[in-house]
Design a binder for these strands. Sequence first.
DNA 1: GCATAAAGTTAAGCCCGCTTAACTAAAAAG
DNA 2: CTTTTTAGTTAAGCGGGCTTAACTTTATGC
Lengths: 147, 147
Amino acid sequence: MTKSPSASQSLRAFMDVFMHRSMRGWSQFAKGTGLSMPQVSILMQLHHKGACGISTIGERFDISNAAASQLVEKLVQGGYVNREEDPNDRRSKLLNLTPKGLELLQEGMEQRHRWLDGLLKNLSTDEKSKVSEALGILTEKAKEVDR
Amino acid sequence: MTKSPSASQSLRAFMDVFMHRSMRGWSQFAKGTGLSMPQVSILMQLHHKGACGISTIGERFDISNAAASQLVEKLVQGGYVNREEDPNDRRSKLLNLTPKGLELLQEGMEQRHRWLDGLLKNLSTDEKSKVSEALGILTEKAKEVDR
DNA sequence: GCATAAAGTTAAGCCCGCTTAACTAAAAAG
DNA sequence: CTTTTTAGTTAAGCGGGCTTAACTTTATGC
């Protein structure tokens, strides 16, 4: 590295490598579990944003409620998702990860983390702390923006 | 943030947010272009690793050569990929992004980067430089590990 | 209370990715 | 030179995701 690049440039370079790697990782993982990417994405989304109904799934993935319903049905059949009536509105459903669903997701994350830990192994203590701080900053901001 | 977390913890939190976001971003982008995720993935991979043949695609995505051939065919039809004979081995093909293919990919990246730039906007100059440095370190390592 | 809207489900049908199998053509092995 | 291996294409068929349309059930507006 000749000179210090801008933060924006660094982010772009990082994203290039990082996105490429993590996307391929997830799709391979999905294949291994027998689930499809859309199905895994729904699990991730439930874990990330908490319980919601069918139509929320539809909106977030920009698919019809019918499609969302069918995908969720498969996840329920597989025991990854719990689907119960919303006590406040009996038309609506409350979707939640089952322990099995959570476990599956965490296994997928583990695989991604193993790759990342491999990156950290070769860093000095000083570098590690810098990386840690910077990612903490970014993550906070991302959560804000993502709302 | 109460106390400084380990680098590994920071990476995990970061991965959670970023993977989720970037994957959804790409799949929405793909939908907008009329291409499927596997097709976009192939474009990304060509851009990232350079020209290769059909069977290399098959190996990298863990699909049959027949499947790879069919996917590539669609990308060639769409004008996103150039497919020519390998002069060194006339059985083999050399696949390359066309300008149109490259442009499409870059548009996708732009969309992701716009989100990221939104994150950077709210950072102080000091934070920006920290982020920049840390991501530079990580990117270098990632490229090494990725081969 | 009745009409209307909203949340989900189900079914029919389309497109797409993927696999296997059969095939062509070129290179490597003997 | 013949045999075998390698790269790629093509076709048939399966399964999955998605859409539209018709329907059920529950909530809401007047």
